[in-house]
Structures are given as structure tokens and as C-alpha cells.
Design a protein around this nucleic acid. Sequence first.
DNA 1: TTTTATCTTGAGAATAAGTTTCAAATTAAA
DNA 2: TTTAATTTGAAACTTATTCTCAAGATAAAA
Lengths: 147, 147
Amino acid sequence: MGVTSEIVKDFKKFIKKKGLKYTSEREEILKEILKSKQHFDVDGLYMKLRKKGSKVSKASVYRTIPLLVEAGYIQEVYKQDSRSYYEVTLDKLPHIHFICIKCKGVDEIIDEYLVEHIQKKAKEKKYTPLTYHLEIFGICHKCKEEG
Amino acid sequence: MGVTSEIVKDFKKFIKKKGLKYTSEREEILKEILKSKQHFDVDGLYMKLRKKGSKVSKASVYRTIPLLVEAGYIQEVYKQDSRSYYEVTLDKLPHIHFICIKCKGVDEIIDEYLVEHIQKKAKEKKYTPLTYHLEIFGICHKCKEEG
DNA sequence: TTTTATCTTGAGAATAAGTTTCAAATTAAA
DNA sequence: TTTAATTTGAAACTTATTCTCAAGATAAAA
Ligand SMILES: [Mn+2]
Ligand SMILES: [Mn+2]
Ligand SMILES: [Zn+2]
Ligand SMILES: [Zn+2]
């Protein structure tokens, strides 16, 4: 049994435990998200679903995302141009995103030490961390060369 | 001569060098921002200006902010509820913001080591950093206790 | 100082991501 | 199968930010 179907089963349990109803739309959205191995936004996700013939509405995508965040499968990792970007958090530590403001390219840096450091600081301030946005906006090497 | 009038003079120079015109609106906005010793958003800033009798329009506030960012006086430090928050960057290193999603309170941690670490990573990836968003969204101690 | 070209302003319209509304459809417990 | 509760899609709504444009301000040149 693949990792995906494990998650789908867990999600169903999660939904039931909350007293909500498990629907095909919710499952469709979760499955599509699990396929994305990169960052995604609502519009991109919605387009992908539509292209495969799905009839899910954008409203349902917007409504399902907070559930998936709460269940711990995805996280909002950054915002750009007034749009939120998410990623699947399977085995992923919080990490830094370098975002090029010219080409919009995103580069990740995973760094265990950094995460520990930040979590120690959070503990000092008695915060319970939920979401990390560690973003550096700037110009990437390629765009710099092109002027 | 105070630090403010120094900055105002520099800003005028900056504006002229760009071939733009120095206006009372731009100066008013800069001065009001320099007074704010905390994070601010456009609406709050605009309200403050209005309360002191200023006639500056919100459009001008929106238009002036990118100039002040470019000049290096302020930076966008985080976004919340689809609103951007800025702060004056005088002698301020990039720093972490702990943001409570319940009470919206913001706590800062300035940490030279962290900044150096991140900048080293940026250099490794050949990025030219411009803006840092180092945010941790979570629950503060107080809100945690209140349930 | 006056002229003139260019830039900036305020007001309101436009844009677009995300939220809300509501009647019809679906779920799942009884 | 019946029934109560939830969810859905579609469209309306909200709201921060951007854009448009005519009128006003700036500053270089005359
Ligand atoms: Mn990432
Ligand atoms: Mn700060
Ligand atoms: Zn780039
Ligand atoms: Zn709080």
C-alpha cells in the first residue's frame, strides 16, 4: 500500500473525528496535492484538477486547504503577489526559501541547525510555533547577470 | 540637527537623483513613518496622518512606500490577513517575528548569529538578498493559557 | 519672473485573492 | 428508507492594492 493511500485513510479518520463528512471532492483535492512535489498555489491546483476533468469548484479548494493544514499534510510556506503558496510537509523540516523577485524562482535551503536554533528561540519566548515563513526576497544569480 | 532632518535631507537627495520631484506629501509621509517605532501598515499610517489634519491621499501613501523601501528607510517585514506590515530599518538587522495568530501580537528576536548564518547561505546560493521575512506564526503564551 | 515640460496628486474605478451566501445535492446516522 | 446535518457549486461580496486621468505642483529654462 502506497504512502498516498495511507494518508487518504488517515485524512478520512481526521475528517470523521471532527464530525465532518468525507466527500469525493475532499479526497480528490488531497490526492492531487500529494502529487505535487513542489510549491503550489490555489489557482495552479485548481487548473490541474480541471484539466483532468474534475468538476471541483474553486470554493471547495479554498475550503479544503485549511483542513489539510490542520491535519498536518500541507503548510503555507510563503506569500507573493498577494497569493499564498503551500507545500506538502511530509518529512519536511521548516526551511528557508530564496525567492527571486524577477523570475519568481524559488530555491530551498534545508538546514537542521537553523530550525533547532529558531525553535529554541521560540521556546525562550514561550511561543507555540505553527507555521514558519522563512523567506528571503532578492535577485538570483541568473537574473543578476542579465541585468 | 536631529536624525530625522538628516534623513529628510537624504531622502530629498535620493528623490532628485532619481529625476523625481520632491513634494510635501512625500516628506509628510516619511516624517510620520519615522515617528513610528513599531510595525505599521498602510491603513494605520493613513489614519494617523488624517488625524493630524493631513490631506494626503491613501494613493500617495501607497506610492511613497516603495520609494522609501528603495531608499532603504523601511522594509516590508511580514504580511498578515492580506495586509503588508513595514518597519523602519534604522540600525536594525533582519530579525525573526513571532506572530500570534490569536491576539495578533508580534514579538521580535534580533539575533546576529542567525542573520549571518542566513546570509552565508544566501551567498552560497549566489542570491542577492533584499528583503527578509522571518516569521513564525503560532500561539503566544498568554493566548495558550486562555485556551 | 514667466514659460514650459514633466511629474505628482486625489478621487474613484478597476483588479484579483479569498470569503460568504444560499439553494440544491450529498452524506451518514437512525 | 427516512431524516437531520453537512457540503457543494455558482455567484455575490469583501478588501488591499493598483491603475487611470484630469487638475495641480515642481523645477528647469528662458
Ligand atoms: Mn519549500
Ligand atoms: Mn520587527
Ligand atoms: Zn531570478
Ligand atoms: Zn496571543
